[in-house]
Amino acid sequence: MKLIIGGAYQGKREFAKAAFQLKEADIFTCTGEHIDFSAPCIDKIEAFTLACVRSGKDPLAIFQEHQPLWADSVLICQDIFCGVVPMEADLRQWRQVTGQLCQYLTKNAQQVSRIFCGLEQRLK
């Protein structure tokens, strides 16, 4: 699995398409709690984790459960970890579980890339 992280609007998805020869049709874009784990690439994992927090589900457990399905995928998650601690409890929880998930994914990744202003910084 390849993990791509980076701040909002940094060009993560474009990088994934160019680096791993992915087409738009290969990418599942999260908008809620549902993930198609069979997709070669899953984008906006942060939207999935936010939906999980709001419905009381554990996103890390869901990823662990489906591990064989994403073992060779490209996973994209926004870095949401550098701001002030959010005032809202659900956003604090969102930051927490997304951070735990990213650390778990990093451990299981062959490659981790941080995208910064459209440029790759190889972290692993």
């Binding site: 701040g7 609007y9 969102w94």
Partner: peptide
């Protein structure tokens, strides 16, 4: 300025 990595909506 890099303003893209906080957990705010």
């Amino acid at each position: 300025d890099y303003i893209y990595s906080d957990a705010a909506i």
